[in-house]
């Protein structure tokens, strides 16, 4: 088995269909929608098409958990003993089990919400964050950026369950949220330990994380305004070890990502 498996080789059964993040960003409907006032984009039970939006997001969480599982698994394998400490690999193996449970939870939640496996397409940008060849970059991409996004998403969905009175959704999201806080802490701890005497490597890792965080803001998917379906979970991020400055930075990155996406979408729709 080779080291560093590219996203194109992620193994899936026939139910899964892949999409790219660029397909979504370049969709000409984005521009048409941007010109309308559809009210708050927040994912809340009272909003139009809330059930189908929640089902769609839940499927995105499901495929995201599969990719997080695969990313953690690859990190146990891709690095030799002299490249990644034994304890780091143990943490990644533990994360494999956690993500495996999250996939199981997501499948059960999907059944509860009437979503079939593979019902929606799958983008692999989450796994792409797990393809860095420096283990600490990978930890920053996966445990701080990806798992940080998971905190935001799970918190949004937990609130969705609470507001709608859905006991199953709230219960499941709360449990998954607990794991994600642990995973982010894991990433922050390893970042500190592995770069203690190497500030340049730390900066490279943080720069990589910024790039991934921008990607994960998905052109406005995550942020702190009414235009963002997923809200930045400041309190939980702080609990997971993010400083206020770091959270502010993610918020700014999200705004920038939204503006970039608007510009790209407008460019794609403009007559040539």
């Amino acid at each position: 088995m080779k080291k560093n498996l590219p996203p194109s080789e992620l193994a899936r059964d026939s139910r899964f269909v892949r999409s790219t993040i660029m397909d979504a960003i370049m969709d000409p409907r984005n521009q048409a929608l941007a010109e309308r006032d559809l009210g708050s984009a927040k994912l809340q039970p009272g909003r139009p098409a809330a059930a189908d939006r929640a089902r769609n997001l839940m499927h995105g969480i499901f495929t995201g958990e599969i990719q997080a599982l695969e990313g953690a698994g690859r990190t146990t394998f891709d690095f030799d003993d002299d490249e990644a400490p034994f304890a780091l690999k143990l943490d990644m193996a533990r994360q494999c089990w956690d993500e495996s449970r999250h996939v199981e939870i997501s499948v059960k939640l999907g059944e509860w919400m009437g979503t079939e496996i593979g019902e929606y397409n799958e983008a692999t940008f989450l796994y792409e964050a797990a393809c860095a060849t420096d283990p600490i970059l990978r930890l920053c991409g996966v445990n701080r950026a990806l798992e940080g996004l998971a905190i935001d998403v799970f918190n949004t969905m937990r609130e969705f369950g609470d507001i709608s009175g859905d006991p199953v959704l709230e219960f499941c999201e709360d449990w998954m949220l607990a794991d994600e806080v642990t995973h982010v802490k894991m990433g922050s701890d390893w970042l500190r330990r592995l770069t203690e005497n190497d500030p340049e490597r730390r900066e490279r890792a943080l720069e990589f994380q910024r790039g991934v965080d921008k990607l994960f803001s998905l052109g406005g998917f995550r942020g702190e305004t009414d235009e963002n379906p997923i809200q930045l979970a400041r309190k939980l991020r702080a609990m997971a070890g993010f400083s206020t400055d770091e959270i502010d930075e993610i918020s700014e990155i999200s705004v920038q990502a939204q503006e970039d996406a608007r510009a790209m979408s407008a460019g794609a729709s403009a007559p040539s």
Binding site: D52, R55, G114, E116, S164, D166, P167
Partner: peptide
Amino acid sequence: INEPRRRYSYRLRCGF
């Protein structure tokens, strides 16, 4: 027909 989908949409509006 995806009956569970319809049930979930209904529960969201009418209560669990």
